[in-house]
Design a protein around this nucleic acid. Sequence first.
DNA 1: CTCTTATAGAAAATTATTTTCTATAACTAT
DNA 2: ATAGTTATAGAAAATAATTTTCTATAAGAG
Lengths: 141, 141
Amino acid sequence: MQKNIETFITDTLHKKGMRMTRPKKEFLDFFTSEEYLKTPQELLENIKQHNINIGLTTVYRMLNYLMEAGLTKAYSINGELRYIFCPPDHHYHMICVKCLRVKNIFDCPVKDVKVDGFKIQSHQVDFFGICDECSKKEVNK
Amino acid sequence: MQKNIETFITDTLHKKGMRMTRPKKEFLDFFTSEEYLKTPQELLENIKQHNINIGLTTVYRMLNYLMEAGLTKAYSINGELRYIFCPPDHHYHMICVKCLRVKNIFDCPVKDVKVDGFKIQSHQVDFFGICDECSKKEVNK
DNA sequence: CTCTTATAGAAAATTATTTTCTATAACTAT
DNA sequence: ATAGTTATAGAAAATAATTTTCTATAAGAG
């Protein structure tokens, strides 16, 4: 976890009277630098593989908190909810449909416009494709 | 449900050895013309309000089937999975963040391109905003 | 119209998620 | 630093969401 993200999240927590603790840090340390869409279970397992012990409840609580804070996004893939950390100012996702790797894309060309009677408030653009590594693995590219 | 959609889905079902039945038709009749993101429970309730009786299991089975067929999309909103029917050739969604109304937008300006090592295979663009009706209801527009 | 087989839906089983509870640890004020 | 206050972690229990099982029924083929 980059220092600035940790500081940012710690400040956000404090504004709500919440505390930055070891389990939260351990979770964020892993989650904020994870590149793949993961289920809560997978996140816990991955973290435990690093010999770090936190509870599943903490994973759920952090995911809920980060979702509310707009710092995480959930995708329903094959009936499973999978999560990815979203840096504060990201706009696009590039998602590999094979390995579920996600890349954040920051530059946003879309302006505030009115479409078909709707005032645009926010937007998300998600591209689904094959990442370079999965391309290499393909027999029939 | 428009005739052409029903025919299209019936054909798709038959290709898999599945049958078009009264409960499936009742569900599709409602779901394919529903404009708002709904939970499975809500869909069932709405259908029952029309004095039509189908089971929750059928709702889940149809949603799973339509998701697989690419004819439905799920959004995780406030921790709830909400579904919307997607016509075969839609590309964009306009989603009202207040009432969860969804409009399909068909024209797609995005081409097959390679971005940051990813070959784009499909994409989705989801705009979140305030629909015209919710705009009218707002005190502070 | 008959026959074969997918189906609906109730109930049970399973899975995912949230809540409860209490010892512990984080921050505040001394 | 240290003591006091209160949010917290995480296990267990509770709940909610979803899937599976099972069998009478109905769809569609011939």
